[in-house]
Simulated scan of single mutants.
Amino acid sequence: MRNDFFENNDKLNALEAQYEAQKIAFSPIVFQVARTMRDLNLLEILSKNKNGLTYEELAKESTLSKYAVQVLCETALSANIVSLKDEKVFLTKIGFFINSDKMTITNMNYNHHVNYLGLFYLDEAIKNEKAEGLKVFGDWETIYPALSTLPNDAKKSWFEFDHMYSDSGFKEAIKILKELKPEKILDIGGNTGKFAMLFAQSNPEIEITIMDLPQQIKLAKQNIYEKDIKSISTYEANILLEDTTIPKGFDIIWMSQFLDCFKEEQIVKILEKIYASMDNNSEICIMEPFWDRQNNETAAFCVINTSPYFTAMANGYSKMFKYTDFEKLLKKANLKVVEIIDNIGLCQTIIRCEKISR
């Protein structure tokens, strides 16, 4: 499956195009107005008053001033978040999704708490290929060792965003992996152990090892201890270091939203390291949200627009992939794709790969 999203997207007349350009120019203001209306419960109040409210009534119910309500609502009106009829404010369908849709809420929290301040430095990050925006949180080269020490709102929003997109595919991914009848699985980039724990709880007879940075392994160990799971072990390592080797003896090497954290040349080196650890019966299973393999444009839009986070905040050099670009990296690492499974959870694709004999 390959979808040609965003093609033929230059069919507006000049006046329409100028209006769309202004929407982009003012989008930071619209974003913050929408978030503020959500967080101050204005959208929730409107959702419970189907017959609409005047500015005075909305001010009274929200305990805000009429000035505050009117400023927010007029920008919201321009963005179709609310409508205005007979001097009353009504919540639109767009406003409903901003207020109530889990994906929209998670995306907005993530962009506000994790990305908003740091994206001010996107131009520097683009030029330097360094996460220049991360300075808003501290002196870090990449965000991954910093995750456990981020401010609470940022940490919570980061993990909710990460887990929403990956977790939605976990149940089906576990079923697919189990059908391959492995005895041992290596979960590279296993993060806090969420996938490994879900897998182990339903398949305690299969050994699973989490390989990740020491900071992430520390969190994973705590989670595993609290769940009292015996079939999970851990392996601390920085996969980018030259002397880091991949442990051998695994039937499946599993990576979920891991390789999109690296440069293309790094991805090839990681895959080559994995190749060296594999025997002829081993296989690699990679789960990633490829934007050109989504089943709708909304999903493709969300996936694509995660890439600037990697540039400004995460590491300065990685991105979400188009599958046709990613496939070239697999070939460079002498890996053969034996199956592609789309529509896993919200947006994921699983690629099964085997070694090509050298």
Rank of each mutant, 00 (worst) to 15 (best):
R2K: 14
E7F: 14
E7K: 15
K11R: 12
A14L: 15
A14P: 09
L15Q: 11
E16H: 06
Q18L: 14
Q22Y: 13
Q22K: 10
A25N: 12
F26I: 14
S27N: 08
S27C: 01
F31G: 10
Q32P: 00
A34P: 01
M37K: 12
R38Q: 06
L40E: 15
L42N: 03
I45K: 06
S47M: 04
S47I: 05
N49T: 10
K50I: 05
N51H: 09
T54Y: 01
E56P: 00
E57D: 03
E57T: 03
S62R: 02
T63W: 14
K66L: 02
V71T: 11
T75S: 08
A76E: 03
L77H: 08
S78D: 07
A79Q: 07
A79M: 03
I81C: 03
I81Y: 10
V82N: 02
L84H: 10
E87V: 04
K88R: 15
K93N: 11
I94A: 10
G95T: 02
F96Q: 05
F97P: 03
I98R: 05
K102D: 15
K102R: 11
K102N: 13
M103C: 13
T104W: 04
N107V: 07
N107G: 12
Y110M: 07
G118C: 05
L122N: 13
E124K: 15
K127R: 09
N128W: 00
K130L: 04
A131H: 07
V136K: 12
D139N: 14
W140N: 06
E141T: 12
T142I: 12
I143H: 11
I143A: 10
Y144Q: 11
S148P: 02
N152G: 01
D153T: 09
F159H: 13
E160P: 01
E160V: 05
E160T: 05
D162R: 11
H163Y: 08
K171Q: 13
E172D: 15
I174H: 11
K175S: 11
I185P: 00
D187A: 00
G189Q: 05
N191C: 14
Q201D: 13
E205D: 11
I210E: 00
M211L: 12
K218P: 00
K221R: 12
N223F: 12
N223W: 05
Y225Q: 14
E226L: 14
K227H: 10
S231Q: 07
I232G: 00
T234H: 01
L240W: 04
L241Q: 15
E242N: 15
T244K: 04
K263T: 12
E265R: 13
Q266G: 01
I267V: 14
I267Y: 08
K269P: 00
K273M: 03
I274D: 01
Y275P: 00
N281G: 09
I284N: 04
C285N: 11
I286D: 01
E288F: 03
F290Q: 07
N295T: 10
N295L: 12
N295Q: 13
E297Q: 15
C302Y: 06
V303D: 01
I304E: 06
S307I: 07
P308G: 13
P308M: 09
Y309F: 15
A312I: 12
Y317V: 12
M320R: 15
F321A: 07
T324H: 13
T324C: 06
D325I: 08
A333H: 09
I341G: 01
N343L: 08
T349P: 00
T349M: 06
R352W: 04
R352T: 05
K355G: 01
S357K: 15
